[in-house]
Design a binder for these strands. Structure first.
Ligand code: NAD
Ligand code: NAD
Lengths: 219, 219
DNA sequence: AAACTTTTGTTATAAAAATAACATTGTTAA
DNA sequence: TTAACAATGTTATTTTTATAACAAAAGTTT
């Protein structure tokens, strides 16, 4: 395995792409393939083959000339880089429509990340299982985080509860948050935060579609 | 309004941030504020004040010294840049858990983007409304896209239907796709594609959490 | 077996993005 | 009224990211 220094120096974009490469490679394994060329990975990811080779160079993986990369080896190597050694447990806070969609989508996809608990305020949900994941009440949050050694939380509560929930998660010792609520959060340094908003994605698409049409109209 | 040349030259990241600024500004308006400083926007977005001012410079907006930026003016200007003049209609293909969460989240948030139709194969869903949006069968897809002048599609079908659905959307003249399925797609040039996978987001967070812990363990 | 092809791996260059430096200008206050 | 301040706006620089160029190797073709 690469040592810490090297991991730290990997570009952020490379980390993202490694995750995406693995996703694509896992699909290839399912299709029964054993090797893949850089230009094939590139096509799947909508990037250039050089970009792929450069990323793989950075993580020190070598393919075979004219044969490409060994898919399962590469999957394993990506695992040693981006995964922790032990399973990292995740809590999903707010077991609503989005939360359930995420649990269903995520669990089982990766070996080293596991949504180990749902947290919801709705009494009808507490005590139930959702796609095999037990749902607890907010009063148990701190305890469950400790007991299950949960490091990361996904936040899918209604927006008006976002700030309070995030604060409690941070206080309970969470080290990473993925925030899907409409409210940008502030967390202390030492807590890694990612936010995603589909409105931005859609607006970006709409902008470039508009630009494309203006371009065409010009002719 | 900025002319096309200028729009085209805006950095992609600036486009994303403009969307995010607007989201934050709309919250500020709700809170009754009229002006905001670059450092306040920056704090919300987890970026630097210089970045904010630079973006606003690029779109030609000027604030008032020691008073900051006029929030509603800025919201309007961002609108003239990233929105189209007319409402852009969007179709949501796959009215499942994720699809419904997205409809509920999205509609009403923006004036110039509207999810105008759901498409689903499930006979129980066809003909029903979801959060006010009518759901049609796949056999009506092409007709509805034409009738409602739908330009953009959000893809939330099961992964095994992703490729076929995307092909039909492209054939029907869709100009932009947001793909949430686990299958990376290929679209012809002229169709703008964005893909999002929460697994990548979560893995990225997990990686930096791991790095943070290795860092600490070092001391 | 020599020339060609295809693919990897690396270094060099270019492009994009972020940051820093600094000039400017109202406002406050000594 | 002038010095200090707090904010914007712009240009310069640095950093990050992506692309291009090219060398090397293994196979293929002639
Ligand atoms: N970022 C995006 O792209 C995106 C997309 C869709 C929805 N959203 C947002 O995600 C959130 C969830 O959306 P949804 O459609 O699932 O809503 P939902 O109402 O179906 O689910 C919210 C859940 O949170 C629970 N809850 C409320 N307060 C809580 C608390 N204090 N602690 C724990 N659980 C609590 C509710 O009981 C409910 O089950 C909303 O904030 C929504 O705006 C974001
Ligand atoms: N990218 C992400 O982060 C993310 C997160 C969650 C889910 N997903 C993916 O999003 C998709 C939807 O997830 P979900 O939980 O809502 O699943 P779901 O099964 O609840 O919904 C899928 C819907 O698509 C409909 N459908 C099936 N075939 C169709 C077709 N040919 N045309 C139109 N509709 C069709 C089904 O009837 C169903 O209503 C899945 O592919 C899932 O893997 C992605």
């Amino acid at each position: 395995m690469k040592d810490q220094k090297e991991l730290m120096n990997l570009p952020h974009k490379t980390i993202e792409r490694l995750s995406q490469y693995r996703r694509a490679l896992l699909i290839c394994v399912d299709e029964g393939r054993t090797h893949i060329y850089s230009h094939e990975i590139a096509k799947i990811q909508h990037i250039t083959p050089v970009q792929v080779r450069r990323d793989l160079m950075l993580i020190g993986y070598s393919g075979t000339l004219r044969k490409g990369y060994n898919i399962s080896e590469l999957i394993n190597l990506i695992g040693t880089i981006i995964d922790s050694e032990k399973v990292t447990n995740v809590a999903l806070v707010g077991v609503g429509n989005l939360g359930r969609a995420l649990i269903k989508y995520f669990n089982g996809k990766r070996h080293k990340l596991y949504i180990a608990a749902g947290i919801d305020i709705n009494p009808e949900k507490i005590g139930k299982d959702y796609y095999g994941i037990p749902c607890y009440g907010p009063e148990d949050m701190e305890r469950i985080i400790k007991e299950k050694d949960i490091r990361i939380a996904i936040l899918t509560v209604p927006v008006q509860n976002a700030v309070e929930s995030a604060q409690r998660l941070v206080d309970a010792g969470i080290k990473g948050i993925v925030n899907y609520t409409n409210k940008p959060l502030n967390v202390p340094s030492g807590v890694y935060l990612e936010e995603y908003d589909m409105v931005t994605t859609l607006e970006k698409v709409a902008f470039y579609v508009k630009l494309g049409e203006m371009e065409k109209g010009k002719d």
